[in-house]
Write a protein that binds this DNA or RNA. Sequence first.
DNA 1: AATGCGGGGCG
DNA 2: CGCCCAGCATT
Length: 354
Amino acid sequence: MDWVKLLLNWYLENKRDLPWRRQKDAYAIWISEIMLQQTRVDTVLAYYTRFLERFPTVRDLAQADIDEVLKYWEGLGYYTRAKNMHKAAGEIVRHHQGVFPQTYREVLALPGIGPYTAGAVMSIAYNQPYPAVDGNVLRVMSRLYLLKKDISQPAVKKEVENLVKQAFPAEQACDFTQALIELGALVCLPTAPKCFGCPIRQDCKAFQENLQNALPSKQKKPARKSVIRYIALIQQGDRILMNKRPADGLLGGLWEFPGVEGKNKKEFCEKFKIKYGVDIFPDSHWMDTKHEFTHLIWEMKIYRCRLDPAETIKETRLQWIPLQELNTIAIPTAFQKIKNTLLNTNSSRGRFLT
DNA sequence: AATGCGGGGCG
DNA sequence: CGCCCAGCATT
């Protein structure tokens, strides 16, 4: 296959200088691959170095509190990745003496590691010829071999894995895996691929038939649903009432301004009572904000609320948090605008008073 | 095989 | 505004 050598040469000349490419530590490679799942390089850059400085080894990660790990993950999304990584670090300490496992079977068995990440770690950290098929590789290979079937079908991914396996150059698994991905990231783009800068266009069947813009074929996702969420801003002095979301599910384990889905203020109060066990009295409408997830849209209506003075907080997920400590707990992006507005309001008032 | 799970950047 | 991205776990 002529294209393999051409691709390798192109990669060695054009690869980006990325922090996870500066060493071969399997632990550090693993962290990068988890962060990069469904996440762009530019986004990860801001997190990667900071995370490794705080958790330089698998033991440091295993010993850390999950809440601190989540704080370092704050804003990165898909928070089960952090939870699974923390769990996997514990397994590596207990079952592998703190040394990152070196066989595909053992790597794949770790929580949060699927076929892609296992292949990436095996090939990039250990230079072993295990295919790592992500969205980039699916796109590159579907064009190169003119695979017209929907790439979301598992059978297509299997076929691409086999094609990559056949193509692996001897002793260059590390570079080859990254070369395929790098080509997808820099040249073989989803829309408007830069075919005339592509080192393997002569071997690309899609390019030959001018079908590069029609591939890969992919089914489109259903429309998102929008829901109204009422948020209670409950402040007493310099403390604000926050809720820690359940460990599993959406934004699991992160902190939020307590709220419920609902149609109106009446439902707001009723559902709040059921969910949190306290009566609230919405005083003033404070602000509105919207947050769009991949699969869901929250239209948030935030009200300043009073509690019954005699009310005590029994729900253990609810906790009074001093305003100064709001920046020390993990709060997802959905609530950052509320948090910042709150902190600005209070700090400007404070300055005015002093 | 289908669904839930974040967030940001782009045209 | 829709689409896409260095996917995995669960059902």
